[in-house]
Amino acid sequence: MFGYITVNSEGLSDQEKARYRTYYCGLCRALHRKYGTLSRLTLSNDMTFLGLTLSSLYEPAELQNAGICPVHPVRKQAYLKSAALDYAADMNILLSWYVNQDHLLDDHSANAGLMIRRLKPYYTELSQRYPDKCKQIEVCLDRIHVLEAQSSVQLDTLCHLSGRILGEVFRWKDDIWGDALRCIGEALGAFIYLVDAMDDFEKDQRRRHFNPLTELHSQPDYFETMRQSLTLIAAQAAEALESLPLEQDIGLIRNVIYSGIWVRYEQLLSASQKKEKKS
């Protein structure tokens, strides 16, 4: 998956970092428990944030434990177990399935093929458990594929469709918080789509693949335009987030929404500035 929805560790206390780790490891454990060891490879920061936000909002019963794992064979790592993280694990697998399908379609990647074979039974199970979500996601993905195949640069539409996918993922339950959660997901999905398009730009140029930013990239204020667009999208996520009654881990959650999501953008910006200096 993408992993752009992450924390900016510089703004965090040691305690907060440790707390984030219990979610990250908790999601990894949930993946292992529900979907086998290989599923751990799909672990993402994006879905860690989902688990974190849902835990803060719904405050489900949390079990904290510590243990060793293949990655930490000696030192015990603290991790959480909760219904919110279990749901995040489901969504992690579901999104990985779609992302790998995409990779297989785009570059016939062998890794993606392997993952697809591995994830197939889990996808079948999840598509029965979340039929509406899967249907919505697939409708959006199909439309994105059609637009991208036509090399259509309808940036708003592409962002909108990608947003709807994550909107479905964020809306855990159909209750009074469902709309705000969906709204956060929609904004973050659009955000991810744009940052991913920035990230892949050079690769896409080399391979002559479609990239929705081709036109914007040739303009002198490309990074500034992108920052403006991303800021507008992030503002929606923040507004929806601030409307929710979140207290637990609010420092971590705000770190992600106001700072962590910008990490990749800033890296791309400074890489491009360095390149400019050289040439």
Partner: peptide, 20 residues
């Protein structure tokens, strides 16, 4: 958003060292 973000670390500096 930017105004509110100044309390929570936006905009950021020196990100390349971000281990996450």
């Amino acid at each position: 958003y930017q105004q509110q973000g100044t309390h929570y670390g936006y905009p950021m500096n020196s990100l390349c060292s971000n281990p996450f």
